[in-house]
């Protein structure tokens, strides 16, 4: 009865008839081979794993491209547009210093955002994929 011990946060979609363990056929709900080791090819194609991969991709790819562009843009502006970066904003604070401090702020914000996203959207999905194997029942 593997179903009974799934955490309430589990949000996996229906897997077309799989997942109902019975006493007659204890192995069918798990994507494992005869020895009980995980069947990685089947896992890789499972809807739960594809969903996990999709959730990672939609956050990580835009976030990585975004921060790299923002950082390299800032460096390029400092190198090639020093006059623009020297424009005063408030008191002694100029655009360059402001952008520099904003790099710190955006790094911390993105770090916290990823940590939160991972906790809420990725970790439960990892658990869902792991529950397809005998991994956590040892």
């Amino acid at each position: 009865m593997t179903k009974a011990i799934l955490p309430p946060t589990d949000s996996r979609p229906a897997r077309g008839g799989r997942g109902f363990a019975t006493f007659d056929d204890p192995g069918t709900s798990l994507l494992v081979d005869e020895a009980g080791d995980p069947d990685f090819v089947a896992l890789q194609a499972s809807p739960d794993f594809l969903e996990l991969r999709r959730r990672i991709t939609i956050f990580v790819v835009p976030a990585t491209c975004g921060f790299l562009l923002w950082y390299l843009g800032y460096v390029a502006l400092s190198a090639y547009a020093p006059d623009f970066m020297g424009t005063p904003v408030y008191g002694v604070l100029n655009i360059g210093l402001l952008f520099g401090l904003l790099q710190f702020a955006s790094t911390i914000a993105l770090t916290l955002a990823y940590a939160r996203y991972a906790r809420r959207k990725l970790d439960p999905q990892v658990d869902a994929v792991r529950s397809l194997t005998a991994e956590d029942q040892a």
């Binding site: 080791d37 995980p38 990685f40 896992l43 890789q44 794993f49 996990l52 991969r53 990672i56 990892v126 994929v129 792991r130 194997t133 991994e135």
Partner: peptide
């Protein structure tokens, strides 16, 4: 791929 994302195995 499965192991790197989930730790299975």
């Amino acid at each position: 791929e499965v192991r790197s994302l989930t730790g299975i195995g």
